[in-house]
Protein backbone atom coordinates (compact mmCIF):
# COMPACT_ATOMS: atom_id res chain seq x y z
CA UNK A 1 0.00 0.00 0.00
CA UNK A 2 1.34 3.40 -0.96
CA UNK A 3 2.06 5.81 1.85
CA UNK A 4 -0.23 8.55 0.58
CA UNK A 5 -3.21 6.25 0.06
CA UNK A 6 -2.67 4.72 3.48
CA UNK A 7 -2.59 8.16 5.11
CA UNK A 8 -5.71 9.22 3.24
CA UNK A 9 -7.57 6.10 4.35
CA UNK A 10 -6.47 6.46 7.97
CA UNK A 11 -7.51 10.12 8.02
CA UNK A 12 -10.88 9.31 6.44
CA UNK A 13 -11.78 6.63 8.99
CA UNK A 14 -10.44 8.81 11.80
CA UNK A 15 -12.74 11.65 10.79
CA UNK A 16 -15.68 9.27 10.48
CA UNK A 17 -15.01 7.77 13.92
CA UNK A 18 -14.80 11.28 15.40
CA UNK A 19 -18.08 12.22 13.72
CA UNK A 20 -19.79 9.07 15.06
CA UNK A 21 -18.50 9.81 18.57
CA UNK A 22 -19.83 13.37 18.43
CA UNK A 23 -23.24 12.06 17.33
CA UNK A 24 -23.18 9.53 20.20
CA UNK A 25 -22.42 12.37 22.58
CA UNK A 26 -25.25 14.53 21.24
CA UNK A 27 -27.63 11.60 21.60
CA UNK A 28 -26.44 11.02 25.16
CA UNK A 29 -27.61 14.55 26.04
CA UNK A 30 -31.18 13.89 24.91
CA UNK A 31 -33.66 13.03 27.66
CA UNK A 32 -34.60 9.35 27.91
CA UNK A 33 -38.24 8.37 27.35
CA UNK A 34 -39.99 6.13 29.87
CA UNK A 35 -38.96 2.92 28.17
CA UNK A 36 -35.31 1.82 28.27
CA UNK A 37 -33.80 1.06 24.88
CA UNK A 38 -35.67 3.71 22.92
CA UNK A 39 -33.17 5.99 21.26
CA UNK A 40 -32.57 7.80 17.99
CA UNK A 41 -29.40 6.00 16.95
CA UNK A 42 -27.86 9.12 15.40
CA UNK A 43 -24.46 7.46 15.04
CA UNK A 44 -26.10 4.98 12.69
CA UNK A 45 -25.94 7.73 10.05
CA UNK A 46 -22.15 7.33 9.99
CA UNK A 47 -22.37 3.53 9.89
CA UNK A 48 -24.72 3.73 6.90
CA UNK A 49 -22.57 6.22 5.03
CA UNK A 50 -19.51 4.01 5.56
CA UNK A 51 -21.46 0.92 4.52
CA UNK A 52 -22.41 2.53 1.21
CA UNK A 53 -19.10 4.30 0.61
CA UNK A 54 -16.51 1.76 1.77
CA UNK A 55 -18.29 -1.53 2.40
CA UNK A 56 -18.79 -3.78 5.41
CA UNK A 57 -15.30 -3.88 7.05
CA UNK A 58 -15.03 -0.11 7.43
CA UNK A 59 -18.59 0.27 8.72
CA UNK A 60 -18.25 -2.59 11.19
CA UNK A 61 -14.82 -1.46 12.44
CA UNK A 62 -15.82 2.15 13.00
CA UNK A 63 -19.11 1.14 14.62
CA UNK A 64 -17.44 -1.27 17.08
CA UNK A 65 -14.80 1.33 17.98
CA UNK A 66 -17.49 3.97 18.35
CA UNK A 67 -19.56 1.83 20.76
CA UNK A 68 -16.50 0.93 22.86
CA UNK A 69 -15.22 4.53 23.04
CA UNK A 70 -18.63 6.09 23.62
CA UNK A 71 -19.38 3.74 26.51
CA UNK A 72 -15.93 4.25 28.04
CA UNK A 73 -16.44 8.03 27.84
CA UNK A 74 -20.05 8.40 28.95
CA UNK A 75 -21.59 4.98 29.44
CA UNK A 76 -20.78 1.87 31.41
CA UNK A 77 -19.32 -1.56 30.75
CA UNK A 78 -22.80 -3.07 31.08
CA UNK A 79 -24.26 -0.80 28.43
CA UNK A 80 -21.22 -1.49 26.24
CA UNK A 81 -22.18 -5.17 26.02
CA UNK A 82 -25.68 -4.25 24.85
CA UNK A 83 -24.33 -1.64 22.48
CA UNK A 84 -21.87 -4.08 20.90
CA UNK A 85 -24.50 -6.79 20.59
CA UNK A 86 -26.94 -4.43 18.88
CA UNK A 87 -24.33 -2.54 16.87
CA UNK A 88 -22.60 -5.55 15.33
CA UNK A 89 -25.78 -7.43 14.40
CA UNK A 90 -27.42 -4.29 13.01
CA UNK A 91 -24.44 -3.49 10.75
CA UNK A 92 -24.28 -7.11 9.51
CA UNK A 93 -28.00 -7.08 8.72
CA UNK A 94 -27.74 -3.71 6.98
CA UNK A 95 -24.79 -4.96 4.92
CA UNK A 96 -26.83 -7.94 3.72
CA UNK A 97 -29.82 -5.79 2.76
CA UNK A 98 -27.56 -3.18 1.18
CA UNK A 99 -25.94 -5.86 -0.97
CA UNK A 100 -29.31 -7.27 -2.02
CA UNK A 101 -30.01 -3.94 -3.71
CA UNK A 102 -33.74 -4.15 -3.11
CA UNK A 103 -33.88 -1.40 -0.55
CA UNK A 104 -32.89 2.23 -0.34
CA UNK A 105 -30.74 3.45 2.58
CA UNK A 106 -33.90 4.47 4.48
CA UNK A 107 -35.34 0.94 4.44
CA UNK A 108 -31.95 -0.64 5.17
CA UNK A 109 -31.61 1.66 8.17
CA UNK A 110 -35.13 0.87 9.44
CA UNK A 111 -34.27 -2.83 9.32
CA UNK A 112 -31.03 -2.04 11.14
CA UNK A 113 -32.96 -0.23 13.87
CA UNK A 114 -35.28 -3.20 14.35
CA UNK A 115 -32.40 -5.70 14.46
CA UNK A 116 -30.49 -3.45 16.88
CA UNK A 117 -33.36 -3.38 19.36
CA UNK A 118 -34.11 -7.07 18.94
CA UNK A 119 -30.45 -7.97 19.57
CA UNK A 120 -30.44 -5.89 22.75
CA UNK A 121 -33.60 -7.63 23.96
CA UNK A 122 -32.01 -11.04 23.33
CA UNK A 123 -28.89 -9.87 25.15
CA UNK A 124 -31.02 -8.68 28.08
CA UNK A 125 -32.85 -12.02 28.09
CA UNK A 126 -29.51 -13.79 28.48
CA UNK A 127 -28.36 -11.43 31.24
CA UNK A 128 -31.56 -11.53 33.29
CA UNK A 129 -32.37 -15.16 32.47
CA UNK A 130 -35.99 -14.20 31.91
CA UNK A 131 -38.09 -13.36 28.91
CA UNK A 132 -39.88 -10.63 30.88
CA UNK A 133 -37.87 -7.96 29.00
CA UNK A 134 -39.87 -8.81 25.88
CA UNK A 135 -42.70 -6.78 27.40
CA UNK A 136 -40.81 -3.87 25.81
CA UNK A 137 -40.80 -5.52 22.38
CA UNK A 138 -43.80 -3.75 20.76
CA UNK A 139 -42.59 -0.29 21.78
CA UNK A 140 -39.02 -1.09 20.71
CA UNK A 141 -40.20 -2.49 17.36
CA UNK A 142 -42.07 0.72 16.56
CA UNK A 143 -39.36 3.05 17.83
CA UNK A 144 -36.63 1.06 16.06
CA UNK A 145 -38.50 1.29 12.75
CA UNK A 146 -39.24 5.01 13.00
CA UNK A 147 -35.82 6.05 14.33
CA UNK A 148 -34.10 3.81 11.79
CA UNK A 149 -36.15 5.39 9.02
CA UNK A 150 -35.22 8.86 10.23
CA UNK A 151 -31.48 8.20 10.45
CA UNK A 152 -31.70 6.39 7.12
CA UNK A 153 -33.21 9.46 5.44
CA UNK A 154 -30.43 11.60 6.97
CA UNK A 155 -27.82 9.19 5.62
CA UNK A 156 -29.51 9.12 2.19
CA UNK A 157 -29.32 12.90 2.07
CA UNK A 158 -25.68 12.87 3.07
CA UNK A 159 -24.86 10.13 0.54
CA UNK A 160 -26.42 12.19 -2.25
CA UNK A 161 -24.41 15.26 -1.27
CA UNK A 162 -21.08 13.48 -0.77
CA UNK A 163 -18.76 13.08 -3.78
CA UNK A 164 -18.61 9.53 -5.06
CA UNK A 165 -15.33 8.74 -3.39
CA UNK A 166 -15.88 5.01 -3.04
CA UNK A 167 -13.01 4.19 -5.41
CA UNK A 168 -10.71 6.69 -3.82
CA UNK A 169 -11.08 5.15 -0.38
CA UNK A 170 -11.40 1.47 -1.10
CA UNK A 171 -8.79 1.43 -3.89
CA UNK A 172 -6.05 1.40 -1.31
CA UNK A 173 -7.27 -1.74 0.46
Amino acid sequence: MKGKAYARRTAFFGVMLALALVLSFVEHQLPSPGIPGIKLGLANVVALILLYKTGLPGALGVNVLRVVLANLLFGSVASMVYGLCGGILAVLCMALLCRSGRMSPAGVSAAGGIVHNLAQLLCATLVTGSTAVFAYFPALLISGTLCGLLTGLCAAGALRALPNSRNEVSKSK
Binding site: M103, A110, L141, I142, T145, L146, L149
Partner: peptide
Amino acid sequence: ADFILVLCAL
Protein backbone atom coordinates in the same frame (compact mmCIF):
# COMPACT_ATOMS: atom_id res chain seq x y z
CA ALA B 1 -39.46 -3.10 -0.26
CA ASP B 2 -38.79 -0.16 2.08
CA PHE B 3 -42.47 0.64 2.41
CA ILE B 4 -43.42 -3.02 2.91
CA LEU B 5 -40.87 -3.45 5.69
CA VAL B 6 -41.75 -0.23 7.51
CA LEU B 7 -45.51 -0.72 7.28
CA CYS B 8 -45.33 -4.37 8.37
CA ALA B 9 -43.11 -3.55 11.34
CA LEU B 10 -45.35 -0.69 12.44
